[in-house]
Structures are given as structure tokens and as C-alpha cells.
């Protein structure tokens, strides 16, 4: 499974969108790699640029967007790809699952039409064979009475069922990379566990890589191999998922973890003062500087570049040493008094 080059490599991605005639930065700097067959979690709050990053991979950015840097899928640069190559990428190689299935599945056509359409029109599969394929896929994603569901319309299905249909549609394309943009955010917590298990199983069976976009650090840590944390349009920290809870070095990652302690744990709630900023509102220094309890003078003047250490990379002038436990409590106490 291991290839010399990663399946997806994003290198110094920078994206601007036009706003009142001026370019406005929505992604400052994203460096990210997804090796074949592995899962990378892209975690951040609203406006941090995580969905934009996923859309940039498929070149599905809004009109007028300007992209800098490289996005290499299997060695080919998506940003300069020919229309034919881009079409092949979208049809065969990368599939996307969105947060709200109801907004992405045609409400007036049947589930069967939706699922078989791509197979029939872009791959030339015969309708009957396509129906057999998607019936098997629906069973795989835990929909028992597949034959009945294929004749129903989206309004007759619950959100959890419809999200499974969306997953089945993504799998039908037999992609190599799955872009999952908050696939479980609109679902109940027990349904979320099921849908994540279904994605997990399907990935394991197919050796499918995944870029998993979410605001939920704990969920990302549970289903991914590596985690990239975004803030204000930049990846501020990248590390192995199993080291997230104990080994996070960026103050933002640590503060996010502290603002969501597990339900049964004794941890107390620590708020981060201020609000998350979009990339275009940040100054010349560290984007998190204004909310950071450990910020010093240099943080306001100079943007920190990602530096490796501790098995990952951290874009911070003063990364926390995870081996010193007092650092966490100190940071938290100070941030509460700020708020």
C-alpha cells in the first residue's frame, strides 16, 4: 500500500476570494499530506478554511478564487490540471461527502436514480447492473431494505439514512480518496457512531484514503491516523492522532481540547477568550496571538512558520512542551481570567 509519494500532497496552499473587487485571503497557508489508505483529520472552527481546503482539492472553489501553492494528487497538480484530467479526477479518483445530504441529493428524483446516475452516464454501466451494484452498496452501509429505498425519494428518508445514501454514492465511484466534510455534524450522537463505523469499515475494505473535516477534535482523533488543526486559514499543528490528547504542542490545540472535556471526566471547562477569526482579519503576526495566553511581543509581529518536532509540526513561536504538565494548567488559568 505504501507508495513513495503520498496520494494527496498540499504544499503551501493559499486561496483568495474576491470581495468588493479586492482579493480577500481565505486560506493563508495549508501544508498537508494524505498517504494512500490513511485517514487525516482536518479540524477547525467555522471560518478556519477547512471546507475551502477540501473544495480546493477538487477545484470546486467559488468563482473568482485565486489559488497559490500546489495540490498534488498522485503527483499531478490539481491547480493546473487540464479540464479532461480534472474531470477524470472528479469522476474516478476523489469522492466527497457533505454535511447536509438533503442539500446535495436531488429531492424530486428517487434514491435509485441518484445512486445509479453517475454509474450509467459516466461509466457506461448498464442500468440493471448499476442497480445491482448500488443495492449491494446500500446493504453495506447498513440499509436493510435496499430495494424499497431505491424507489423512495429523499424526503421519505431520515437524515441518518440519507447520509448513508450519500456514502454509498461516494463509494459507488470506487474512488481512492474520500473527502468527508463534517459528514456526521447534523446527525444524532448514536447515529454519528454508526455512520463513522460504516465509513471506517468501507475504508478498511478498500484501502481508501480519507480527508476528514470536522470541528470535533475527539471524533477526528478517534477515526483518523493523523490530525491537522486549522486556525484562521492556516494549519497551526499537525501530529499523529494518538498523540493529540497528551502530545499537542500548539496553544490553540491545547485550548480547544480544554474547552471540550469528556462527559465523565473530572476536567473543568476552560474557555478561550475572543472569537475565531477568518484569515483576512488577521494581522502580520500569529493569527491566534490575540487569544493566546502565552503570546509575547514577537507573536504580534511575526507569523510563525511550521516547524517539526515531537512527531509532528507546529506553527508557534513558543510551542508547549507536553512533558511539562504545569504548562497546561498555567495556560488555562490565565485564559479564564482573560475571558
Amino acid at each position: 500500500m505504501n507508495r513513495p509519494q503520498p496520494l494527496l500532497a498540499i504544499d503551501e496552499l493559499h486561496v483568495t476570494l474576491p470581495f468588493k473587487g479586492q482579493p480577500r485571503t481565505v486560506i493563508q497557508r495549508v501544508d498537508l499530506t494524505v498517504p494512500a489508505g490513511s485517514a487525516v483529520g482536518l479540524v477547525g472552527e467555522s471560518g478556519s478554511g477547512k471546507s475551502m481546503t477540501a473544495r480546493a482539492v477538487l477545484r470546486l472553489l467559488p468563482g473568482g478564487a485565486r489559488t497559490g501553492g500546489k495540490i498534488l494528487f498522485d503527483g499531478a497538480d490539481v491547480t493546473t490540471m487540464s479540464p479532461a484530467a480534472l474531470r477524470k479526477l472528479r469522476i474516478h479518483d476523489v469522492a466527497m461527502i457533505f454535511q447536509d445530504p438533503r442539500a446535495h441529493i436531488n429531492p424530486v428524483r428517487t434514491i435509485g436514480d441518484f445512486l445509479t446516475e453517475a454509474l450509467v452516464t459516466t461509466r457506461g454501466v448498464r442500468p440493471r447492473a448499476a442497480e445491482a451494484t448500488v443495492t449491494a452498496l446500500l446493504r453495506e452501509v447498513g440499509i436493510a431494505d435496499a430495494a424499497r429505498r431505491l424507489r423512495q425519494r429523499p424526503s421519505e428518508l431520515s437524515g441518518g439514512l440519507l447520509q448513508r445514501v450519500m456514502i454509498a454514492a461516494a463509494l459507488a465511484a470506487e474512488p481512492r480518496l474520500l473527502l468527508a466534510d463534517e459528514p456526521t455534524t447534523a446527525l444524532d450522537v448514536t447515529t454519528q457512531a454508526e455512520v463513522m463505523a460504516i465509513i471506517d469499515e468501507a475504508r478498511a475494505e478498500r484501502g481508501l484514503a480519507m480527508l476528514f473535516i470536522t470541528h470535533d477534535l475527539a471524533l477526528a482523533a478517534a477515526v483518523c491516523d493523523r490530525i491537522a488543526v486549522m486556525y484562521a486559514g492556516s494549519v497551526v499543528e499537525e501530529l499523529p492522532a494518538d498523540r493529540l490528547h497528551d502530545g499537542a504542542r500548539h496553544p490553540y490545540t491545547r485550548a480547544l481540547l480544554a474547552s471540550r472535556p469528556a462527559p465523565g471526566s473530572g476536567g473543568s471547562l476552560r474557555a478561550i477568550p475572543g472569537r475565531p477569526l477568518p484569515a483576512y482579519e488577521t494581522g502580520p503576526g500569529c493569527a491566534f496571538g490575540t487569544r493566546c495566553s502565552q503570546a509575547q511581543e514577537v507573536c504580534g509581529a511575526e507569523r510563525p512558520l511550521p516547524r517539526s518536532g515531537g512527531g509532528g509540526t507546529t506553527a508557534c513561536h513558543f510551542p508547549v512542551d507536553p512533558l511539562v504538565p504545569q504548562a497546561t494548567t498555567g495556560a488555562g488559568d490565565r485564559s479564564t481570567t482573560h475571558g
Binding site: 447498513g142 450522537v189 448514536t190 454519528q192 457512531a193 454508526e194 455512520v195 463513522m196 463505523a197 460504516i198 471506517d200 470535533d216 475527539a218 471524533l219 482523533a221 478517534a222 477515526v223 490528547h245 469528556a262 462527559p263 465523565g264 471526566s265
Partner: peptide, 16 residues
């Protein structure tokens, strides 16, 4: 409900 909340060491499962 509690088992469905992601915590360190949690793995998603088909609970239904």
C-alpha cells in the same frame, strides 16, 4: 448515548 460520545480510545461502532 454515553458510549457514542468520542473520547480518547473510542472507536465508532454500529450500536443500533
Amino acid at each position: 448515548l454515553l458510549d457514542s460520545v468520542p473520547v480518547p480510545g473510542w472507536k465508532p461502532s454500529r450500536v443500533l
